[in-house]
Design a protein around this nucleic acid. Structure first.
Lengths: 223, 223
DNA sequence: CGGGCGATTGATTGCCTTCAAACGTGGTGG
DNA sequence: CCACCACGTTTGAAGGCAATCAATCGCCCG
C-alpha cells in the first residue's frame, strides 16, 4: 500500500504488474522479493546488479567504519527507490527495518534505457541529484546541529515525507534514529522526552509521534 | 598549472583554448574568469547557469544553517569541476579560497550534449555519482569519527588527491579545515600539533604538511 | 618598528556519551 | 489466562571530549 508523498518526487503508480517508474519515460519491470526484519538486502562491495523499489515496509542504507561503527545514511519508505549505483559495486549496505517487500529491477535494463533514451538518462540524473542533495543536507545536520536540533530536523523531515500527517508511525527503532543522527540511543530518548515536556510532540507509544506544535519544532531545529 | 591526480578521474588536458573535458565524449568550450580570495563565485539559491572548472587556485563549496553556521562540503582544486546542478538553482555557495581562475561553461550546452549523446549523459552521471560518494564518505566522517580521526582522514585524503606527494601545501586556513571537519580552529590546531609530537607529520609552516609516517596516520584514522 | 591577522597554547565549561539500573510491552509457554 | 522472559526504551549519575573563553605567539606587510 503505497502512501502518496507530498514532494511528489515519485508518484507511486498502483501498477498491476511488478513495474517501477523511475521517472518520466522510464518504467521497467522487475520481480518481487521479500526480506524479513534485519535481513541484509545487499552489502557494501557486492555486485550491484539490481536496483530496488520499496513496495511495503522500510529499509535503511548505511556505511560502516573499519572498526564497525555504523552510520545510517538514509531511510527508504514505500515507493522509494534505493540501491542505484554507477560503479560496479554497491557503495552502501541495505537492510530491512521491518519485513519488507521490494521490486528488483535489473540494472542492465536501466543502463540500456539510459543509453537509448535521453529522457530516461535524465530521469536517472534526477534521482542521483536528489540523493546528492539529501546527502548534503544530512552532512549539514551531522556537522552543525546539536542533539535537539537534529531530532527536530529528523521529525519535521520525516513528517514531510509522509504527506505531512500530524501522526507519525516511526518504522525504525531508537537505535536506528541514533545511528542516523549520530547520537546515542539515550540522547535520542531524552530528547524525545524533553520535546514532549515542551508540548511540541506527544508520544503515546515509543514508535508513535504526534506533531503537536510544528512551530515549536521548527524553532527547535533552529538552523 | 594543473597538477595531475592519481585517481585519474579527470585527466587535465593542457588545452590551448578554454575547453573543459567533463568525461569521454563530452568536451565543451567556456570562458575564463578570475575571482580573488574570499570572493563568492556563486551563491546558494542563485540561478545555476554555469558549470565551473578550476584552472588555478582552490575553491570551497558550502552550506549555511539559518543562524549562519557554516559547513564546508568540499574543496575543489585545480582541474576539478564544481557548480554542476540539476535543479534550476545552485544548492551550494562557492567561494575562492585563494585567487582563482576558472572556466565557466554554459549549462545549457551540457544539457544539450546530454540530450543528444548518451555517452555525454553517462559522463554527467559519473560526475554526479562521484560527488554522491564523496558526500556520503564525508557524512561518515562527520558522524562517526573523533577529532583526531577526522584530521587524519582529511590529510590522507587530501594527499591522495595531490598525487600522493609527501609534502602538502594546504591552500586553506585552519578555519576552513575546521568548518569542513566540523571542529573548531583550536581543535584542528591542537590535533596537528599532537600529530607532529607523534612524529606522524612535520609542520615547517602552518600551511605546509610533511607526511612523515603515513602508517601512523592511517592508524590514527582508525575507521 | 608597529599593526593586524591567523595560529597556537592554556584553562575552564558544557554537551553528549558512557555506565548502570529500572521500566514496559509484546510474545511464548505453562 | 496468566506468569515469565526478552528486548527496546526510559531514566539517572558520572565522566570525557571537544567547545568556549582568553592570552600569547609568529609572520607578513605596510
Amino acid at each position: 500500500m503505497c502512501t502518496p508523498k507530498l514532494d511528489g518526487s515519485t508518484a507511486c503508480a498502483a501498477s498491476a504488474a511488478d513495474q517501477v517508474q523511475f521517472g518520466p519515460g522510464l518504467t521497467l519491470t522487475g520481480v518481487r522479493m521479500k526480506f524479513s526484519r534485519n535481513e541484509e538486502i545487499f552489502g557494501e562491495g557486492e555486485e550491484a546488479d539490481f536496483v530496488y523499489k520499496v513496495v511495503s515496509g522500510s529499509v535503511r542504507t548505511m556505511r560502516f567504519t573499519q572498526d564497525g561503527r555504523r552510520q545510517i545514511l538514509g531511510f527508504h519508505l514505500c515507493c522509494d527507490i534505493f540501491g542505484l549505483e554507477w560503479g560496479e559495486k554497491h557503495s552502501l549496505t541495505a537492510e530491512a527495518i521491518s519485513d519488507v517487500e521490494v521490486i528488483m529491477v535489473r540494472r542492465r535494463l536501466l543502463e540500456k534505457a539510459a543509453d537509448e533514451n535521453p529522457v530516461a538518462a535524465r530521469s536517472l540524473l534526477n534521482l542521483a541529484a536528489h540523493e546528492l542533495d539529501e546527502s548534503r543536507a544530512h552532512a549539514l545536520v551531522l556537522g552543525r546541529k546539536s542533539a535537539g536540533e537534529r531530532v527536530a530536523a529528523f521529525l519535521l523531515r520525516f513528517s514531510q515525507r509522509l504527506a505531512m500527517c500530524q501522526e507519525l508511525d516511526l518504522p525504525m527503532s531508537r537505535a536506528d534514529i541514533a545511528d542516523y543522527l549520530s547520537l546515542t540511543i539515550e540522547t535520542v530518548s531524552r530528547t524525545f522526552t524533553e520535546m514532549e515536556r515542551l508540548r511540541a510532540i506527544d508520544l503515546p507509544s515509543s514508535r508513535r509521534v504526534i506533531m503537536r506544535d510544528r512551530m515549536a519544532l521548527t524553532q527547535l531545529e533552529a538552523a
